[in-house]
């Protein structure tokens, strides 16, 4: 198909910016060599590019920048707090799973070791039941606190005090749970 003015005109912008393919560039070159109207159009294209390129750039007011940054900084801080809480909840969830696994597969076994199912003494059952309640209570507390505290809070404050409370003698009135 012959490369004519209708094809050449829309291509001139890309042609001037070097965006045309090699094949199209050759066609435009050949057409321009033979077409005065399109050569004039190319000059107008160049002049318009210069005129629009010479338009000054307005300076964004400092107050606008400040407003944008105020919103962004606040949202960024909120996102960080939310992520830390989610990590805390994740940790607590892991603790809960690990504790449940330990309770179900280890602790009851320790309390009842050596006794067959039909020979549990009332004391063994009471001890296992109490340990289960204490462990679940501790885990629930950690989980609850993690929802409102940071990971650092959980490790440095909530968890040690809860563990310490759970390790006090059963008859200690200050014992947690």
């Amino acid at each position: 198909m012959k490369y004519d003015c209708d094809a050449c005109g829309p291509e001139l912008g890309a042609y001037l910016l070097g965006e045309s393919s090699d094949e199209t560039r050759r066609e435009v070159d050949a057409h321009l060599a033979a077409c005065t109207a399109c050569r004039d159009e190319l000059e107008r294209e160049r002049a318009l590019r210069t005129a629009l390129g010479d338009l000054p750039t307005a300076t964004c007011p400092g107050a606008v920048t400040a407003r944008i940054l105020a919103v962004v900084d606040a949202e960024y801080a909120a996102t960080r707090r939310r992520n830390r809480r989610l990590r805390g909840v994740g940790l607590a969830g892991g603790l809960l799973a690990a504790t449940l696994a330990a309770v179900l597969f280890l602790r009851p076994g320790a309390a009842l070791r050596g006794a067959s199912a039909e020979h549990y003494t009332p004391e063994q059952v009471a001890t296992a039941r109490h340990e289960l309640i204490q462990t679940l209570t501790l885990t629930a507390r950690v989980l609850d606190q993690a929802g409102r505290s940071t990971l650092v809070d959980v490790f440095n404050d909530q968890l040690p005090s809860a563990v310490e409370g759970s390790l006090r003698p059963l008859d200690d009135p200050t014992r947690g749970g």
């Binding site: 000059e43 160049r46 002049a47 210069t50 005129a51």
Partner: peptide, 10 residues
């Protein structure tokens, strides 16, 4: 206009 005035000047 300025655009047309620049014809041929580039």
């Amino acid at each position: 206009d300025g655009v047309s005035e620049q014809r041929g000047s580039a």
